[in-house]
Write a protein that binds this DNA or RNA. Structure first.
Length: 466
DNA sequence: TGAAATGTTGGGGCG
DNA sequence: ACGCCCCAACATTTC
C-alpha cells in the first residue's frame, strides 16, 4: 500500500485539514508525524510550548480514535523525516505551508532532499493570491481587504474528520511528548475546545461584537487566537461560518458584528501576507526612514512596564492580565503598546519580544504587525502623533473600572474617578481605601502630558533627519 | 483602531 | 429691549 507522511506543524486538527486531506487517509497509509524541533522549541515561550504539547496529546487521542497513531520524533526535521522516509518507504510528505521566515528556509531545504508537498491552509487566501495588478503585494490594509473580499473562496469545508486511518506499522518508533510544566488553564488545548468556543462566540457574542469588542471589562472577543495560531481550528472553517452569518442573518446587528469580526480576521491575513512578502520585518521596521530612532534605554522603565508597575492603572491591569493568563485583551494590547513606545519611548522590539515570551497566542506575523503599527514604523501604520492617553482609554473602555480592579487588586477598593487616577487620592482617602501611593501602588513613572510632548518631538526629529 | 488645541456657535445671565 | 460676556457644546485643525 502506498505510504505517505502527514507532517504536522501548525495544523493540529483532523477537521478541515487541507494537508491531511491531500495526504488522503482514506486511500493511503498516512503516517501522522510531529517533529519536536529543538531550534523552535528551545526558545519557544513556556506557555506556548505547554499549549502545543497539550494540543499534541489531544491530537494523538483523536488519531487513536480514528485507528491511527501520532508518531513523534525529536531532532532536526530534515534528519528525522529523511530517516522516516527510509524506514517506511513513504512516497511523499504532505504538510501545511508556513509563511514565517524560519519555516520557509526549513521547508526549502527539506524540499531539496525530500518529496515535500506544501499545501495552503495557514490563511484563508494565500499571500500570493491577494496581490495588485502585476503581482506586487498590498501594503495598506483597506485595499488589501477589498481585494481579499473580491476573491472567490476556496473549496468547501470538511465538517467531519476522516473516520478511518490505516494504522501505522507497530514497530515505528515514537518518542514521548515532553511533560508540560504547568498548562495554560484559561486555554485548554485541542480542536474540540476550539470548536466549542467558536460556537459559543457565534451564539452569544458575535452579534454584539462591534459594540463590545473594545470593552476591557466584558468578554466581547472570541479568544480564539491561540487555537488559530496552532491550527486547532481551521481558519477556512471559521471564515466560511462567519460569511454564512453575514449573508444569512436577517438581523442587521448580527450582520454588523459578524462583519466587524471578519475584518479582524482579515487583519490576521494581512499581517501574514506582510511577513510573507517582506520577511525582513521580523528584524527591522518596515519603514526605512524610522529604523534609526532615538529610543530611550531604560531597564527600570521596561521592568516597570513588563510587571505592571507603571502607575497607570489600565496599563498595569493589561500587563498583569498578560502575566497571569498568557493572554491580553486586544484593546489592552494597544494601550500597553502605545504606552511603552510613546510614553516611555522604548524600542517597540522590546515590547514585541516580551509579548512573544508571554502570549499563549504569540504569533510572529500578527504580533510584529501590531507592534510596528503602534510604533508607526510599519505598513499602514498609526500616525506618529496618535498617542493614547492611558487615563482616557481607561475611562472609555473600562468605564466602571472593573477590569482594573480585577487585575490590580490593590486598587480594587477605589471608587470611580480614583480607580483611573489613583494619584489624585488625598492622604485621607488613601487611608480610607488602604491604598498608599508610592507604597502599595506606584506613582506614575512618567507624566503623560510631558511624555506626549517628548514623543512628538522625538518622532518629528527622526522624520526630519531621515 | 487619538487627543489636544483652536475655532465657532448659540443660549443665558446680567448690567 | 439691547449688547456684552461667559462658557458649554460642538466642529475643525493640528500634532
Amino acid at each position: 500500500m502506498n505510504t505517505v507522511i502527514w507532517w504536522i506543524r501548525r495544523d493540529l486538527r483532523l477537521i478541515d485539514n487541507a494537508a491531511l486531506k491531500a495526504a488522503d487517509p482514506q486511500g493511503r497509509l498516512v503516517l501522522p508525524v510531529f517533529v519536536l524541533d529543538p531550534v523552535l522549541l528551545d526558545k519557544e515561550a513556556p506557555r506556548r510550548k505547554a499549549f502545543l504539547i497539550e494540543g499534541l496529546r489531544r491530537l494523538a487521542d483523536d488519531l487513536r480514535h480514528c485507528g491511527s497513531r501520532l508518531i513523534v520524533r525529536s531532532g532536526s526535521p530534515l534528519d528525522e523525516l529523511t530517516r522516516l522516509v527510509q524506514e517506511t518507504g513513504a512516497s511523499a510528505i504532505y504538510t501545511e505551508e508556513d509563511y514565517s521566515p524560519y519555516a520557509r528556509r526549513r521547508d526549502e531545504t527539506a524540499a531539496r532532499h525530500l518529496p515535500l508537498r506544501l499545501v495552503a491552509g495557514l490563511t484563508f487566501h494565500h499571500p500570493l493570491s491577494v496581490v495588485k495588478q502585476g503581482g506586487t503585494p498590498y501594503t495598506v490594509f483597506t485595499p488589501f481587504s477589498k481585494a481579499w473580499k473580491a476573491l472567490s473562496p476556496p473549496a468547501a469545508v470538511d465538517e467531519l474528520p476522516p473516520h478511518f486511518f490505516q494504522p501505522p506499522p507497530p514497530d515505528l518508533t515514537s518518542v514521548n511528548l515532553p511533560p508540560t510544566e504547568g498548562s495554560v488553564k484559561e486555554f485548554p488545548a485541542g480542536g474540540e475546545e476550539a470548536s466549542r468556543r467558536l460556537e459559543r462566540f457565534f451564539r452569544s457574542s458575535v452579534g454584539k461584537y462591534h459594540l463590545q469588542r473594545d470593552r476591557l471589562d466584558l468578554d466581547g472577543t472570541s479568544q480564539l487566537s491561540p487555537y488559530l495560531h496552532f491550527g486547532m481550528l481551521s481558519i477556512r472553517r471559521v471564515i466560511w461560518r462567519v460569511q454564512q452569518i453575514i449573508q444569512g442573518t436577517p438581523n442587521p446587528q448580527v450582520k454588523k458584528g459578524a462583519e466587524t469580526w471578519l475584518n479582524e480576521l482579515i487583519w490576521r491575513e494581512f499581517y501574514h501576507s506582510i511577513l510573507y512578502h517582506f520577511p525582513f520585518v521580523q528584524k527591522e521596521a518596515f519603514r526605512s526612514d524610522l529604523r534609526r530612532f532615538p529610543w530611550r534605554d531604560s531597564a527600570l522603565d521596561l521592568e516597570a512596564w513588563k510587571y505592571g508597575r507603571t502607575g497607570y492603572p489600565v496599563v498595569d491591569a493589561a500587563m498583569r492580565q498578560l502575566l497571569a493568563t498568557g493572554w491580553m485583551h486586544n484593546r489592552g494590547r494597544m494601550i500597553a503598546a502605545s504606552f511603552l513606545v510613546k510614553d516611555l519611548l522604548i524600542n517597540w522590539q522590546e515590547g514585541e519580544r516580551w509579548f512573544m515570551q508571554q502570549l499563549v497566542d504569540g504569533d510572529l506575523a500578527a504580533n510584529n504587525g501590531g507592534w510596528q503599527w503602534t510604533a508607526g514604523v510599519g505598513t499602514d501604520a498609526a500616525p506618529y502623533f496618535r498617542i493614547f492617553n492611558p487615563i482616557l482609554q481607561g475611562m472609555k473602555f473600562d468605564p466602571e473600572g472593573d477590569y482594573i480592579r480585577r487585575w490590580v487588586p490593590e486598587l480594587a477598593p477605589l471608587p470611580l474617578p480614583y480607580v483611573h487616577e489613583p494619584w489624585r487620592l488625598t492622604a485621607d482617602l488613601q487611608q480610607r481605601y488602604g491604598c498608599r501611593l508610592g507604597v502599595t501602588y506606584p506613582y506614575p513613572i512618567v507624566d503623560h502630558a510631558a511624555a506626549r510632548e517628548r514623543a512628538l518631538a522625538a518622532y518629528q526629529s527622526a522624520r526630519n533627519s531621515a
